[in-house]
Design a protein around this nucleic acid. Structure first.
Lengths: 128, 128
DNA sequence: CGGGAACTACGAAAGGCTTCGTTGACACCT
DNA sequence: AGGTGTCAACGAAGCCTTTCGTAGTTCCCG
């Protein structure tokens, strides 16, 4: 049931996952309060129940108010979504996605330095 | 009707857009033949009709077999999807997406060089 | 002209996502 | 014990996506 690859999270699911990633394990009420979008409590509850079925989250039922956790760390999901996008619209080239992403500007000098470092290590790697 | 921002294309719509971007304006039949997924002719037709309503494509009805074109160039849609993903899962930081994308490896030396060039110009820019 | 091929248009069904009302359980307070 | 508040579960509705069968149109060929 819980084995195998997880489905791509929908937008509503992603919003919930962001809360769980940012603040750790949380109850439905806490998640609902955190994401102050217009959605009602039972909407959030239902979505999180579905996410449990899909395996996107796990829950601890030992307390009356169930406590939910993201099943995968943020980075895994980011990786999944990036790979997905690369395949669907960038012809399988991560570099083209990176170029497109960076063209939107708004990148701090610190991040540029970090990118340069990654580039260095990638080039070194390809030489060997 | 056709003004305003376009909706995010669905997966099936993206597959069709890829054909139109790669090969230029095409009829339904040509698109259907090109993407050799299992879907039937009328499925592709219907999807393309919906895309027309949404404004994702335009069509020339002067011929009996209507000729469809992507309304936006590939780059605009890529930009839209990248921005979308950056906002939804990378906390608004294009650089973090770029880092994640490049960590998947499989990047050719040519592309690395291209990235380095972009990085250079971005750094120069931030100095001024 | 008649028939078949190549089209578009229409409508409906199935499945997924999102929403929420309602119900029932449980817990605490008085 | 009764009332109030908090919670999970259920089910249904509305909407979107994807799928395709069917029907109608147009064109061409013999």
């Amino acid at each position: 049931m819980s084995r195998g690859k997880l489905p791509r999270p929908t937008d509503a699911e992603l919003a919930i996952l962001r809360v769980l990633w940012d603040r750790g394990a949380r109850t439905v009420r806490e998640v609902h309060e955190t994401l102050r979008d217009g959605s009602g409590y039972t909407t959030v509850l239902k979505t999180m129940q579905i996410m449990t079925e899909k395996g996107l989250v796990t829950r601890d039922e030992s307390q009356r108010a169930h406590v939910y956790s993201a099943r995968l760390p943020r980075e895994s999901t980011q990786q999944q979504l990036v790979t997905d996008l690369v395949d669907r619209v960038f012809g399988g080239s991560p570099a083209r996605l990176a170029l497109q992403a960076l063209s939107t500007k708004k990148t701090s000098p610190e991040e540029l330095a970090e990118l340069r470092q990654l580039l260095d290590s990638l080039e070194k790697e390809s030489e060997s």
